[in-house]
Structure formats: structure tokens, C-alpha cells
């Protein structure tokens, strides 16, 4: 399975996302922001960082990169896309996901090991977790406070599209403790904390992040084999 990892100018966790794909057993394919060709990858990760220096708004410029035109179209057609941190911000700017990520309520950048509770396991990126499972992965951001209007928040909850919530403390003031959400089809997931930094015992607080990447591989295997799993069944 070939999973693309996009590098924008200012992407920082792109190498780490590629490493996580490899550790999960996939083939990581590096994609370049200026190249609209996504080289036939089966899924895409938009990594963390400060694309374009966070100019204007986080993710606001990346959303217009040539590679994003292709990814946005493909995502609407079911391509699994995971946006991590800045990637989540880009997905919101691209209107593939609702809501927005704003400045942390306490105004500080914050990096800590964060407990999350998995809310939705029927997505392309979380089908190896169990519902209600508590995981521990790093969070590190300055603008990770998820906000949306009440109607949208209600809808996300009603449709089971809150993929993960912060637990044992909310690190940035996100509404309803939301850490990750998905689109209606379940193929696009945005997550503020960093699963790619919890894939090795030596460097991470746990191995809990691996599940996001193995989920994608499982999802893709299901698609390939005709047994639709995760978001693709919806």
C-alpha cells in the first residue's frame, strides 16, 4: 500500500509521518506541494508543521497548493486522507472538514503527552481501535483550539463524527474536548495531536499512534479485496 506524505514549505513532521507509515507496514511516497500529481497513492497524510509560515491563517495558503487541488478532488471521491496538526488545519481550510482551529485558549504553544478517548472507529484511519479506548499520544501546537458553531458541533456528535476527544485535561480549549473529527464518508480525518510521534517505544510515550496508520492499511486492504471497511462502507 502506498501512502503519500505531502511536503509543503514549512512542513516539519513530514519525515516522521513517512516513518510511521513505514513502521506500520506501508510504503511512504513523498509528495511535493507544487506538483499536482499524487503519483497514484492509495492514501495521503498531510503532516504537521507551519506550512507557508502560517501566513494569513494556519493552512490558508496550503489549501491552494497544486497538490491540494488533486487531493481535494480525490478525497471527495473516497481517497483516505489524514491531516495531522497543520494538516488538520489545512483540511478545515479546504472545507473537507467543518470548523476551524484557533489559537490555544491560554495563548501558549503546548507540547505534552495527551490522553485521548477514541469516539469513532468506523473511519479509514481508526478502524483498528475500539470505541471508548483511551490512548496516549503527544500534542504540540499553538493553534489547536477546535471551534465550530453549535449546529455543526451537534451534527458532528449526532453523526458519530467525533473521532477522538481529549481526556484527563483539555490542552488547548477545544470545544467539547474535540481532538479529531471525520467527514461524513469517514475517509477524511483531521487530528490535532500527533499519532506519528507515538509509533516507537524508544521515542514516543506509547505505541498508540500506530493504530491510525495500520487502520489505513487495513481499510485499503478491504477496499482492494472488495470487503469495504471503515468509512468506505457508509
Amino acid at each position: 500500500m502506498r501512502i503519500g506524505v505531502v511536503t509543503f514549505p514549512g512542513s516539519l513532521d513530514d519525515g516522521d509521518a513517512a516513518r510511521a507509515v513505514r513502521i506500520a507496514g506501508g510504503e511512504a511516497v513523498r509528495l511535493w506541494h507544487g506538483d499536482a500529481d499524487i503519483h497514484g497513492v492509495d492514501a495521503v497524510v498531510l503532516p504537521g508543521g507551519f506550512s507557508y509560515g502560517d501566513a494569513l491563517r494556519c493552512g490558508a495558503i496550503a489549501r491552494f497548493a497544486p497538490v491540494m487541488e488533486t487531493i481535494i478532488d480525490a478525497a471527495r471521491g473516497g481517497l483516505p486522507v489524514l491531516g495531522i496538526c497543520n494538516g488538520f488545519q489545512i483540511l478545515c481550510e479546504a472545507h473537507l472538514l467543518p470548523g476551524a482551529l484557533t489559537r490555544n485558549q491560554h495563548l501558549h504553544f503546548r507540547n505534552r503527552d495527551q490522553h485521548l478517548r477514541i469516539g469513532a472507529t468506523n473511519t479509514a484511519w481508526t478502524n483498528t481501535f475500539t470505541e471508548g479506548e483511551e490512548i496516549l499520544i503527544p500534542v504540540k501546537n499553538g493553534e489547536g483550539c477546535f471551534v465550530a458553531d453549535t449546529h455543526t458541533l451537534d451534527e458532528l456528535e449526532a453523526e458519530g463524527r467525533v473521532v477522538a476527544r481529549y481526556t484527563r485535561g483539555n490542552p488547548n480549549g477545544s470545544q467539547r474536548d474535540i481532538a479529531a473529527i471525520t467527514n461524513a464518508a469517514g475517509n477524511v480525518v483531521g487530528i490535532m495531536p500527533h499519532p506519528e510521534h507515538a509509533v516507537e517505544a524508544l521515542t514516543g510515550p506509547s505505541l498508540d499512534g500506530l493504530g491510525f496508520f495500520t487502520s489505513a492499511l487495513r481499510h485499503l486492504a478491504g477496499v482492494a479485496g472488495g470487503q469495504l471497511t471503515g468509512g468506505a462502507t457508509r
Partner: peptide, 28 residues
């Protein structure tokens, strides 16, 4: 001092084996 160190990214690049408040920072 985590009030301070939480404002720093210690994970990026994925090779941080030990970071503050440990005695030394260790990198792979």
C-alpha cells in the same frame, strides 16, 4: 519547569530519546 518546557516541541524529527527534565538530551 514544565511551564517553560511545554512551550517547546521536543518530539519533532522523531529521534528524541530523552529530553528535559532528564539529565541530558539524547538523540538517535
Amino acid at each position: 519547569k514544565s511551564w517553560v518546557t511545554e512551550q517547546y516541541d521536543r518530539y519533532v524529527l522523531g529521534n528524541t530519546v530523552l529530553a528535559q527534565p532528564e539529565d541530558s538530551g539524547v538523540l538517535r
